[in-house]
Design a protein around this nucleic acid. Sequence first.
RNA 1: GCCGAGGUGGCAGAAUGGUUAAUGCGACGGACUGCAGAUCCGUUUCCUGGGGGUUCGAUUCCCUCCCUCGGCUCCA
Length: 480
Amino acid sequence: MRRVTIYDTMSREARVFAPIAPPRVGLYVCGLTPYAPAHVGHGRTFVVFDVVVRALRHWGYRVFSVQNVTNLDDKLIARAAEEDDDPLQLAERNFAAFRRSMTELGVTSVDYYPFATDYVPEILQQVRMLVDRGYAYVADDGSVYFEVAKFPAYGRLSGQKLSQLQPGARVEVDARKRAPEDFVIWKAAVPGEPSWESPWGPGRPGWHIEDTAMTGRLLGARYDLHGGGADLIFPHHESEIALSESATGEAPMVNYWIHVAFVIFQGEKMSKSIGNVLDLQAAIEGVGPGALRFYYLNAHYRSPLDLVPDRSLAEAREAYDRLAQPARRIEEILARDGAERSGDPIPAELAAASDELIDRLDDAMADDFNSREAIALLFGWTRRLGELLEGLDHLSGDGLTALAEPYRWAQEVLGLFVERAAGDARELERVVPVLIAARSRARARGDYAEADRIREELGAAGIRLEDGAAGTRWSLADPH
RNA sequence: GCCGAGGUGGCAGAAUGGUUAAUGCGACGGACUGCAGAUCCGUUUCCUGGGGGUUCGAUUCCCUCCCUCGGCUCCA
């Protein structure tokens, strides 16, 4: 199996990936709290993990990928109250929209999206365990808190020293706590809000324990990979470690921590609470899912990605279209004639170069998922094929397939060029050439008014014509 | 204050103890075209925050300073 290195936030270095029970790999990604529609920043994180899973599977690992949904929390309750709505239904709706966006973006690798409220028994069991073992205490109102002082390793993931934290820096200190760093794992019910019965009275789960209850159930006390946005390192992931390792007595909970850097927008992290957000679905519709996905993968996942308004996404679209150009033309021919079509062979050195390139692409990805490096290599291939482009029609099916291999690799591992497989142009393939032929006759006799009329009317119908040396080619005007 | 990640050309963004520091966008020039667009080709040799140090050689390693972003119990 290919040697893969992964940067681990805990050890702060890239380490060779060694799963607990290869070829199986367990991955848990902290997903969305769907109190509002997802934005472009969220999209980055989930596309990155999609590629992580695709790459590992490509190399033969059998990955079980879980991405949780915090479908009940303070913000959901507050937002639902504003809109006179039910928090669980609000979460359901926003999550459904999120799933549609993910599907469009080609995020297909997640095996299971567990909802927090479906794991209340597991959560209660873990709370009870923590209370019994003396790691957690019950406050007067029936809330249960984890006592951070009982877990000396607290702060290791983030490098924080408890003595240096500033209690109340952003969130007010809760008077029910014994120490400001303690955090709630079971919240006493407020009348009118969703709640469940518990040994400490009605209540609902705290944030951090949802994840540890789910991972304990789905992935076990110890598993391979855990990821999320970089803003989750502290306190969320720090607290997960404390809860899980205290409750199970097993450590480390996770062998590799993967954190994705932010999308920077208008000089700050894109964030719902700041309000500088670009709606995810709007971006998908505006620039196309393939181009957006390209934009995300065009930087290393650990580097902040600076989104320049009205520029970055348009630039990604240009670059993506150019990168995909040979792939589109090759696949068009293969789709039309089949891989068995006869024609000229490609030069032997080009076939060898295709194989070698794929090896280098795998190397780039195996180096801490360096998708930017892989894309640079793919551009080299596109440029190399540029001169061949007009003569593609003379090549054999075998030759064309060899030329397509690096793009097919990108389709599988990076999830790019997926729109190619859409194939909703079947009927058009019979009709459009007839119209093009009519236009060509008009051009041949110098009737440009008629030629332009046909081009314009097809354009209005979403079909773009381009005249070139090899004749007129057509495409869907917005081939996202 | 403390912790973390960063500062690379007009912009985005990789990499590396050593020949010209990727790749893309943009810009400019050319080919193609009835026009347009798209596409292709070429050019874009003065870009590694400041100051020290180690070294034959530093953008890379070390120290220090400055700046930006993020976290310090809402967060992808």
